[in-house]
Write a protein that binds this DNA or RNA. Structure first.
Lengths: 343, 343
DNA sequence: ATGAAAGCGCTAACAA
DNA sequence: TTGTTAGCGCTTTCAT
């Protein structure tokens, strides 16, 4: 553990040793054409020798923004978000940016992190917004170029990149309907979140298209990333008098919880229940007969999101294009869904 | 997307509007006891009204370090590291720190990220070091309080927190030996990494203790986080003339690759092969008969690592305690290991 | 090709 | 209780 009070080497120190002025040092290190090659070489040599490292805060004081890119996620242990973090980190590295990771599940924490980023004069941020960003968050975001990812808060007037949630869930539901299922349960996040709204809408549309009324729909909505909620939901479903023949899950964490529950109770799929999951992880292949699931191009999504943000940073982003991009999911059919055999 | 050129509100602006001096503003916002409650309230009100956000770089220029804590990881998609990131993020939030995530697999990228952290005057960092940190990295770390996590590079003279790798793998190997296995293969990372060295050492010790000579040991070493290597390794093992009756895997990623391989080929465990995995994820329970594996208290490890770092930051860390802490793994016995029935 | 000096926003020592 | 001022390390005119 090094001594913290260790004075750092400054341009002034370098200047003294190299016997030039501070401005010459600054210019030499910035490869200014006005400085002779000879001086440049000498200055750089001295700088390295002394272990000079530029003082970013001091430079930032003269205006401009730091190379920090904020990434606000609800949960890094979710494979979805980990993939996003990795893709974004790659993009940042390529552009010389530094990633600041903020994990927030509630609007207050979110606001605090945004404030810190603004305070640090971050260059921009990628945010998966919470349900109801605070007024403060919204005001702060006015001073920070940003892009929304996955979720979309209407109150935030920025470009957004997401999954086509409605169409994805619609496809999953239709798959079950075409297999003859009619008592199909939907388990997912609440309608507070844009994603929750869109997803349940996809379920409803598919059901309606097969002539199933709202009274026949089985919807269990709760906290999107709560395994406990998922466990409770599947338990309730299986215990209900007219238990469904199939279930469609619409979040990663709930999917994992349900898979775990069914496995622990030794309840075989698709015999007991046909299951359509959300997201795709390697282990979904070896869960029971293999999980039929919706795969999303998360990595590509995060990359295009980053590219767009960087582009905005470069061009200065004076306009407000309100660009909204969505990508579709792919249904991966495995063993967990089978034709309905119930009455 | 907001206008980037938007001038930010400074203390001077607040001072003008509130009709006080800049220092009064600074003190009022810092809750200095010398300022009257009345003035404080007014200044704070004006600051909020104007949307004032402190300029962190400017404050840092006066010396001291930022609230940035760097976290250097090889791979955020590995559940191990994601858990660490989350635990650390929680600790940082609690202490008002901001997490800067750096993903680096090679010494050059690692060096670049460390330099950026030093340049940004980060408060400290938690690092899972690469095999051979560059000379530059080592020099830079002298100016940045840090702690090593999981891996330990001898060249870095800092406190370290890790798994007791030798003992853990020893326990896993002994479990197989006690089940009667003798042809036990070890698949893990190379001996370049401290973890790789310790782990294979645990395997060797256990084997020796059961009277098995070095010539009877089956070791396949390669890149620790390469699924491709894992796939190749298990393929080779199964194709070999005297195929082992059991395999012990010593990294998370290789474990995942091997599980996938065996599942895809429909090779049942423990009939074909007894398997002891590394790490523990929910899905290990439902892989085939359930994976016997070594579970590590990663979250606790990361937390204690963060606590230690924060403590060092607080006390100033003038001494160099070279504190090394290791926690043991727990063997979780499931269905993938069974008594040896081969000749 | 190089140097001197101003100023970025903030804090703290010194004044009042 | 509040104001004045110096200076942190760097870039950027403006001089030389």
């Amino acid at each position: 553990m090094p001594d913290q009070k260790n004075k750092m080497v400054t341009t002034k120190d370098v200047a003294e040793v190299a016997k030039v002025s501070v401005s010459t040092v600054g210019r030499a290190l910035a490869d200014d054409p006005r400085i002779s090659e000879q001086t440049k070489t000498r200055v750089k040599q001295v700088a390295t020798q002394l272990g000079y490292v530029e003082n970013l805060p001091a430079r930032l004081m003269r205006g401009g923004r730091s190379n920090l890119i904020g990434l606000m996620l609800p949960d890094i242990r979710n494979a979805f978000y980990a993939t996003i973090a990795e893709a974004l980190s790659d993009c940042c590295s390529a552009k010389g940016h530094q990633l600041a990771l903020s994990l927030a599940n509630d609007p207050q924490t979110e606001a605090r992190h945004i404030k810190e980023l603004v305070s640090a004069r971050a260059a921009g941020m990628v945010i998966v917004p919470s349900v109801h960003p605070t007024r403060e968050s919204l005001a702060l975001l006015k001073n920070l170029p940003h892009v929304q990812l996955l979720r979309r808060a209407a109150s935030i007037g920025a470009a957004s990149f997401g999954i086509n949630d409605e169409a994805s869930i619609h496809e999953g539901t239709r798959h079950l309907l075409e297999l003859g299922h009619r008592r199909i349960a939907y388990v997912g996040g609440t309608e507070e979140l844009s994603t929750g709204r869109d997803r349940v809408a996809g379920y409803r549309r598919a059901m309606r298209e097969f002539g199933i009324g709202a009274d026949q729909m089985i919807e269990i909505l709760g906290p999107a990333s709560s395994p406990e909620f998922g466990t409770q939901a599947i338990a309730d479903l299986l215990a209900s008098p007219d238990r469904p023949t199939a279930v469609l899950v619409s979040t990663v964490r709930i999917t994992q919880a349900i898979l775990e529950y069914l496995h622990e109770r030794g309840m075989a799929s698709p015999e007991t229940l046909s299951v359509v999951g959300f997201g795709d992880s390697p282990e979904f292949k070896w869960w029971g007969p293999g999980l039929t699931t919706l795969r999303m191009p998360i990595e590509e999504l995060a990359t295009s999101c980053a590219l767009w943000l960087f582009h905005q940073l470069e061009v200065g982003a004076t306009t407000d294009p309100k660009y909204h991009s969505t990508v579709p999911a792919t249904l991966i059919v495995r063993g967990s869904t089978a034709p309905c055999v119930s009455p």
